[in-house]
């Protein structure tokens, strides 16, 4: 059963806001507190907000478990492949290989305290995004599984 109209409407309104904020945290992981995991958890909580506002059948017809599962796998593969590409540059696993690539992803930064710039830190933002979508998929899928477990029959 879903919750009252007020809660549903509030969830609808808050959902994009939480998404934007979560992506903000993911993207600014190397500048402000946060990062892939925290942002992913925030986004997953946004999904969980929808799960609580609507009933289980209503949710599963709009958001598929398979889609979230794929998101998770995609994030993991992106993460490990990003780390593996470093081997092609003759350096070791998990080396920050994008640091030498140029200004697109690696703006030169001022060292010491500075206001921060989004396109710095080479591979770290990419890994942030990878972990972010992995975590958002994983946590919401776990909650969906547990919701399916609260039904009377399997």
């Amino acid at each position: 059963m879903n919750m009252s109209k007020i809660v549903r409407e509030a969830a609808n309104l808050l959902f994009p806001f939480i998404l934007v904020f979560g992506f903000y945290i993911v993207l600014h992981g190397h500048l402000t507190p946060g990062g892939g995991f925290q942002g992913g958890a925030v986004i997953a909580t946004g999904f969980v907000l929808l799960f609580v506002a609507y009933s289980y059948p209503q949710i599963t017809e709009r958001i598929g478990v398979g889609a979230l599962h794929n998101t998770e796998t995609l994030g993991l593969l992106l993460f490990i492949v990003t780390a593996l590409i470093a081997l092609g540059f003759g350096v070791t696993f998990f080396t920050n290989w994008m640091l030498d690539i140029g200004p697109i992803l690696n703006n030169p930064v001022a060292f010491g305290p500075n206001p921060g710039d989004l396109n710095t830190a080479g591979v770290i933002p990419v890994m942030n995004i990878a972990v972010g979508i992995e975590v958002l998929g994983a946590l919401s899928v776990i909650v969906l599984y547990m919701m399916s477990g609260t039904k009377e029959t399997i």
């Binding site: 945290i25 990062g35 958890a41 997953a44 909580t45 609580v52 776990i142 909650v143 547990m146 609260t150």
Partner: peptide
Amino acid sequence: PDVAIAEAGIGAGLTTAIFVMA
């Protein structure tokens, strides 16, 4: 603050949610 955000994101919504569902 990094840990605080992680604990906030997890503890505020998800932990309570999964405990209540359990």
